[in-house]
Design a protein around this nucleic acid. Structure first.
Lengths: 350, 350
DNA sequence: ATGAAAGCGCTAACAA
DNA sequence: TTGTTAGCGCTTTCAT
């Protein structure tokens, strides 16, 4: 049977005895269609195996859809800057496809600013949203709103216990701690280790390093059960204080040579470390921040575990694009990213 | 001035006093256009900043362009299988964009089969070509042909000293050897090391492990100058022979605990290694082959350096797509890929 | 609630 | 060598 090979809305219009207009209406459930017609169309679509033609659609619409990106404001050189940068990396596949990603930032220490950002985002009537969530409760509330508006959303970096998201892209937190410990020890028995931690004022926020720390400790428990793990708290906004803290601490523990931070801030220790060099030290941190990579190149930091936040953002946007443009669900809802090990010998090609 | 914002071929037609047809002809340099018109059109395109509308083009053409992939035939579980697999990963961004990648394979040990593949590829009138080259001379010849046909091509994995390629995606070979050495030693002084090598019959082919070995040796020279580096040659097609070779060799060198292969075949050593376990051994290899990763999980292999050949293919195809569809040149001609360090603690999330 | 028709920007076949 | 024109499949406005 030499039927036409691609079936179009015209085909399904004829098949149902309706018109292209009506078919289009049900395709985009934009109302004004009788229940009967709706059903007929749906059935025809099913039977004939209709698939929309993206180009035609885009051509006809000839107006970009906006994708909202809800992300903490990025201080220069910070983790969030990398995330935001990922939005640019989708150039080829997405922007030319009629989607324009648009950033909506909020202050990660101010829940009100988060609410504001949500508000603005909604007003932009986005076709989809990417969320890097920090405030659990509030994020859940926002997710509800999106759902009731039929707007698909995907999480990156961390994920509240929502259920309605299209996808999630992030590092497996527990395993990253495990991996980190293995890199710190180098697979050997080590005599002691120090975790430097950030003193957080507002612990209400989701703490992604929590699971990571659990993974780290479990590794140590299993492979270096005799090794004491110390904790030292610092204030990221007080460089001088960090110096003093390290001075004081290492006066008491001069033999500790294995140092780790489970967040992206290992660069905070670099000034002190470089003033007190020790070739036998091993220093492990997370994330490919500029300052971290520089320290890696100089040998101050031994290795970094990178999740490539730009990639998270890129993949999130592409998943959204696939869904919006082609109604294609992502293969997996939860997508755990590579954990890349960066040393000074591969950092230049990361 | 409220001019129309998007300029179309109609605009440039009017601006030059020619017609859409002619403009289209020069846009696709398909001849039948006077030199004068050609120039006028080109200038207008420049002046008005015309950018083609991909959807419209695709809609109108409504027929896929084929992209030829010239790759060595993949034995199951081999390196080249991963490369070929990469062709599938472009689903979202490319296939729906009116390009259909098509594989043309050749026997990596038979130059005639390479010539055949080239022939077939050409007959398919591809809009672009991805080449994983092994035969230097012959590849150069083929590249000439493509150029004279105006067909863009990109190299992956390795690259002959051609100049006309659109782009290249591969691992930096020398540095990968360096990195590998660092992983083998763990940054420590080691007493001795063994490189297991493949005995090649036809050394006429480009040997990508050559540079890699140079990097490896240079690292050892610099960081472990006292460490002897042994070489042992094996025949990949003779498992029993490999066993015997290892037996014999390790009888003579029972203390050597650092073992490396600079190609993707570390899995060849696994049976022997697992019959002669030694917890203090370090074994380093390349590439994320199934068999390699399994050995990694079991702890037989300490670490793998992966270049993710699927990614090379994916990026190659996308670069081609960008060029064919949007006439956009890749940012960099030579693109060196990540070198990822895989251990048993991150292999499950690679 | 439904249909008719005019594009969206480009391609390709046909005329001139 | 160049111009004309009929689509490609979908969206959207305006009648009905």
């Amino acid at each position: 049977m030499a039927k036409k090979e691609t079936i179009t809305i015209l085909d399904i219009a004829r098949h149902t005895g309706l018109s292209k207009g009506t078919v289009d209406r049900v395709l985009h459930n934009r109302g004004e269609v009788s229940k009967k017609s709706h059903e007929k169309v749906m059935r025809a679509i099913e039977e004939l195996g209709y698939e929309p033609n993206v180009y035609a659609s885009l051509l006809a619409r000839s107006q970009d859809l906006t994708v909202g990106l809800l992300v903490p404001a990025a201080e220069p050189g910070s983790f969030w800057e990398l995330v935001s940068a990922g939005a640019g990396k989708t150039a080829g596949s997405v922007e030319t496809f009629g989607l324009s990603p648009r950033l909506f930032t909020y202050d990660q220490y101010d829940i009100d600013s988060f609410r504001d950002a949500c508000r603005q985002l909604l007003e932009a009537r986005p076709a989809g949203v990417v969320i890097a969530p920090l405030f659990q409760e509030e994020t859940n509330r926002f997710a509800r709103e999106l759902e009731s508006g039929g707007i698909p959303y995907v999480f990156i970096d961390s994920k509240p216990d929502t259920i309605g998201h299209l996808a999630y892209f992030g590092m497996p937190p527990y395993q990253s701690g495990y991996l980190c410990a293995d890199q710190l020890t180098g697979g050997q028995d080590i005599p002691s280790a120090l975790i430097v931690r950030i003193r957080r004022d507002r612990d209400s926020r989701s703490d992604p390093t929590l699971n990571r720390r659990a993974g780290f400790m479990d590794y140590m428990e299993q492979y270096c059960p005799e090794c004491p793990v110390f904790h030292l708290f610092i204030d990221p906004n007080d460089p001088a204080g960090i110096d003093r803290a390290l001075d004081a601490w290492f006066r008491l523990h001069p033999d500790v040579r294995h140092i780790v931070m489970l967040n992206s801030r290992i660069h905070l220790l670099v000034p002190w470390l470089e003033r007190h060099p020790d070739r036998r030290r091993r220093v492990v941190g997370f994330d490919n921040l500029r300052a971290n990579m520089d320290a890696l190149r100089r040998g101050t930091v031994t290795c970094l575990i990178a999740q490539h936040p730009e990639e998270q953002m890129r993949q999130a946007i592409e998943a959204l694009a696939d869904y919006i443009l082609r109604k294609k669900l992502p293969e997996n809802k939860d997508n755990f990213m590579h954990m890349d090990i960066l040393t000074r010998f591969n950092v230049d090609y990361y």
